[in-house]
């Protein structure tokens, strides 16, 4: 399908981005460590294949990628794949929980807003979603941290586990992780939640104007049945695609809250690799992030085809 050219496009862009560096990727390395002599640099260049023409470098990089070899970190020599593998589960679980939160509350708020159109509740909810959409997540993190973490001392402000995590019971461990995740989850979800709520509101409003809703009312169905059985079903359809489109936003946002709350996920890995100019890691995470987005969109499209009967059953005119 179109996934193949997309894959090449993604890798090509990632590759180009890195090699935009004026003076080549190794300059930064030697800048950090002035003791590296000119010949040592040359050796490194040959080792990393940086002296060959760009297309060749790209080609050999792709081949290694397909073998799942992202090279080794410039900083500590660890295999990039390993580094990413340690960080991905954390980010993925947070993203997954985030998507759940976004879906459940976004739909609830959006529907409530649409059903009570133009009421005071609607106006308040609309304002809150607009605010949620506009709030800078790093600011929100700091506010939450200082209020719940420092002033009230209720929630821990960094990491995933407390000092005594290993000694806790199973439920203790679970609770511990949840306490650590509460604030990051809130921060991670707020923008997406606001977006989904607003979209749901307008989708539901559109649906409620349709003729089949009038038919449902004319049939004498209760208002509940009309709204939820007939209305909601239709309004939820485009939501699937939208959720798929939220993936890149969630991943990008992870940089901020993972750094602030010291969560060892992909975002923080990416950030530290950017700071230390660790190019293999940067490229690896970049490509992987894009691939995850692709997968997310693909799954969303698949789910949509499955759910919308207009696509699932091709039109047949049975006279």
């Amino acid at each position: 399908m179109e996934l193949v050219p997309l894959f090449f496009g993604i890798t090509f862009i990632s590759f180009t981005v890195i090699h935009l560096a004026p003076g080549g990727p190794l300059d930064a390395l030697s800048a950090l460590n002035p003791k590296v002599s000119a010949e040592a640099k040359e050796k490194l260049e040959r080792l990393y294949g940086l002296d060959k023409p760009l297309l060749v470098q790209y080609g050999s990089w792709i081949i290694r990628l397909l073998k799942c070899d992202f090279g080794n970190s410039f900083v500590d020599g660890e295999k990039v794949t390993l580094k990413i593998a340690k960080a991905i589960p954390v980010t993925l679980s947070i993203s997954f929980l985030s998507l759940l939160l976004i879906l459940i509350f976004g739909v609830l708020i959006g529907v409530a807003s649409a059903v009570h159109e133009d009421s005071p509740l609607d106006k308040i909810l609309t304002f809150f979603t607009l605010a949620g959409f506009s709030v800078p997540t790093f600011w929100l993190s700091l506010l939450l941290m200082s209020f719940f973490g420092v002033s009230l001392g209720l929630l821990p402000v960094s990491g995933l586990y407390s000092l005594f995590h290993e000694e806790m019971s199973f439920w203790g461990k679970l609770l511990d992780v949840l306490k650590h995740l509460l604030m990051p989850l809130l921060v991670a979800s707020i923008t997406g939640l606001a977006g989904i709520a607003r979209f749901m509101r307008s989708s539901m409003r559109e649906v409620l104007k349709q003729n089949y809703i009038r038919t449902a009312r004319a049939k004498g169905l209760s208002e509940k049945e009309v709204l939820y059985k007939h209305g909601l079903k239709n309004a939820l359809l485009p939501m699937i695609t939208l959720l798929g489109l939220s993936v890149p936003g969630l991943l990008g946002g992870s940089v901020i809250f993972e750094s602030i709350f010291s969560i060892p996920g992909m975002g923080r890995l990416f950030f530290s690799s950017v700071f230390s100019r660790d190019y293999p890691v940067i490229m690896g995470v970049l490509v992987l992030g894009a691939l995850l987005t692709l997968v997310g969109n693909f799954l969303a499209d698949l789910a949509y085809c499955f759910v919308d009967p207009r696509i699932r059953y091709s039109s047949e005119e049975s006279a």
Binding site: I13, P248, G249, F271, V274, G289, A290
Partner: peptide
Amino acid sequence: CFPTFFLILA
């Protein structure tokens, strides 16, 4: 396909 922030950071 790229998370925008990732790309910008890179």
